[in-house]
């Protein structure tokens, strides 16, 4: 679905944010895009949506070049930005004006999502809280039935019940022909939701692996003492939460936050494991 080859991008010509970035993303997956503030998560998503232009390299989304912003591709992209603007109209008017651009827009599904997110229907968009607006654009985006769903910090501004609803809805929204990319720095919000982790750090992709591959190759467990096999550890109440190579094929649950910190701190130790 998405092919990136030797992509070079920077907001200034002298300082590149991505250097020779290459990656392929396929449908039927929920990708979690993680990285520090300023690592380039949002910029990578904007490149995919054609909102910024790369200096060099090729980028293909569903066979189109997103930089051309062709309607045939835009109909298949649902982009939920971190900051957004909604006009001062009621939901009905907003849907009437925008839904017609998406040939697969599902009004019944949209109504179901509004009910699930507990969004009052008759209210003007401008009078809604930030969280309600965010849930509305998520509901609208999913109802477009777009093949590529890009979400930049979607859980920002959502309360705790809404985050749980969000995870539930996103899990059910995944179909075989859809690709969902969710960027966040709140890694715990993506627990049990994503099936592939992409980590951006220092101009490139520091890690891209499925949850299964990660738990096959790494073991996340609590240890009492440090030893040489441990790649990265953080002190906890009863010892350390550690990441170590999974020599004995143990079953362990992926700790996204621990993995995130491990990649940032011990990139060189992790790279050979995933290459």
């Amino acid at each position: 679905m998405i092919k990136i080859n030797d992509l070079n991008f920077g907001y200034s010509k002298h300082k590149l944010l991505f250097k020779n970035l290459s990656m392929q993303l396929s449908n039927g997956h929920i990708y979690g895009l993680l990285g520090k503030n300023g690592a380039g998560k949002s910029t990578l998503l904007k490149n995919l949506a054609g909102l910024v232009y790369a200096q060099s390299g090729t980028l293909e989304v569903l066979g189109y070049n997103p930089a051309k912003r062709q309607p045939a591709l835009l109909q298949q992209i649902c982009f939920i930005p971190e900051e957004f603007y909604l006009p001062s109209v009621k939901i009905d008017a907003y849907v009437k004006a925008n839904a017609a651009f998406y040939p697969n827009f599902d009004h019944a599904y949209f109504a179901t999502l509004l009910a699930e997110f507990d969004i009052p229907v008759g209210q003007k968009l401008i009078n809604m809280s930030y969280g309600q607006k965010k849930k509305l654009i998520i509901a609208f985006g999913l109802a477009t039935n777009a093949k590529l769903i890009i979400m930049d910090e979607p859980t920002n501004g959502l309360d705790i019940p809404s985050k749980a609803q969000f995870r539930k809805i996103m899990a059910s929204a995944l179909t075989e022909d859809r690709c969902i990319i969710i960027s966040t720095h709140q890694v715990r919000d993506l627990d049990n939701l994503i099936d592939t982790v992409i980590m951006v750090d220092e101009n490139s992709i520091a890690l891209k692996a499925s949850v299964e591959e990660i738990t096959n190759k790494l073991c996340f467990k609590r240890v009492k003492e440090m030893d040489d096999t441990i790649i990265y550890a953080e002190p906890s109440m009863a010892g350390y939460n550690a990441v170590m190579p999974n020599f004995h094929q143990e079953d362990s649950k992926l700790d996204l936050e621990l993995l995130f910190n491990a990649v940032l701190a011990e990139k060189n130790k992790l790279k050979p494991i995933f290459n």
Binding site: L51, R69, Q70, L74, F79, P81, F84, Y85
Partner: peptide
């Protein structure tokens, strides 16, 4: 963002 991504040429 919203305007540029509206599916129109």
């Amino acid at each position: 963002i919203i305007d540029l991504l509206i599916p129109a040429s």
